[in-house]
C-alpha cells in the first residue's frame, strides 16, 4: 500500500447522496480475479453513454475535474454491498481522498486498506466545500493528514478527526496483517482457551 502524504489537488464535486457500491462499480465488473484495472469502470452506468462514449453530463467527466485526487460527495457514500472492488476502482481512477458527511460502515473500513482517506465533514463544512467548488471549478484543496487539515483557497478548510491507529497505518502505508501477526502468541493463547471453553467447535 502506498503511504499517504500531504498533497494539493483538484477537488471534484459529486453532489449526490446515498451513492451505493452498485453505482461505484456495477456488478458486471466484479468477475475479475485481480485487484487492478477497475478504474475504467468507476461509476460506469453514469459515466458512459450507451455507445460507450463519455456522458458529458456526468460530473466527473467535466474537464475541470480531470486529474482530481479529492472526491467531494453527499451523505452516506458507499452504501450497499461489501465489494472492495469499489475502493479499488476509486483508487485506480486516481482518487486518494473522499470528503463526505458519512460513509457506509464496510466501505469506510475498505478505504483504509487501499490507501484512501475518507474524511468526515460536518454538514456545514461539506456545504461550504461544495459551494467553493461550484463557484470555482478546478479549485485545488490541500489535504494534510499529519495535521488532520483540509485547506482551501477561500478559507473553508477545517480540522478532521481520524482514528490514530488508522492514521498511522495510512501515513506509513502499513500492512494490517503484519501488525496483527506480531500478536501471534496472544492469538494462540486465546485459541487454547477457546478449545477448553467450546470443545464442540474443535471436536
Amino acid at each position: 500500500m502506498k503511504a499517504y502524504t500531504k498533497h494539493e489537488s483538484i477537488a471534484a464535486l459529486m453532489n449526490r447522496s446515498n451513492v451505493d457500491t452498485d453505482q461505484i462499480i456495477p456488478k458486471q465488473f466484479l468477475k475479475k480475479v485481480e485487484r487492478s484495472g477497475f478504474g475504467v469502470h468507476l461509476f460506469h452506468d453514469w459515466r458512459y453513454n450507451e455507445d460507450t462514449s463519455d456522458n458529458l453530463d456526468f460530473e466527473l467527466n467535466k474537464p475541470a475535474f480531470k486529474g482530481s485526487k479529492i472526491l467531494v460527495v453527499g451523505d452516506n457514500f458507499g452504501c450497499g454491498s461489501s465489494r472492495e472492488h469499489a475502493p479499488w476502482a476509486i483508487e485506480d481512477y486516481g482518487f486518494n481522498t473522499i470528503i463526505s458527511t458519512s460513509y457506509a460502515d464496510i466501505f469506510y473500513n475498505n478505504c483504509f486498506k487501499n490507501g484512501i482517506l475518507p474524511i468526515v465533514a460536518t454538514k456545514a463544512q461539506l456545504d461550504a466545500l461544495m459551494a467553493e467548488i461550484e463557484a470555482n471549478e478546478g479549485v485545488q484543496f490541500t489535504i494534510d493528514l499529519e495535521n488532520q487539515d483540509v485547506i482551501t483557497p477561500a478559507g473553508n478548510g477545517f480540522k478532521f478527526e481520524i482514528d490514530p491507529f488508522r492514521k498511522e497505518n495510512l501515513s506509513k502505508g502499513l500492512d494490517d496483517i503484519g501488525l496483527t501477526l506480531k500478536h501471534e502468541e496472544k492469538i494462540s493463547q486465546y485459541e487454547d482457551k477457546h478449545k477448553t471453553l467450546y470443545p464442540w467447535l474443535w471436536a
Binding site: 472492495e84 487501499n114 496483517i177 496483527t180 501477526l181 501471534e184 492469538i187 485459541e191
Partner: peptide, 15 residues
Amino acid sequence: GIGTSEVEHVMATQT
C-alpha cells in the same frame, strides 16, 4: 460483512 482485504486478514490471523 467484510471487505476482501479483511477476508485475507481473517484467513491469515483468525482475527
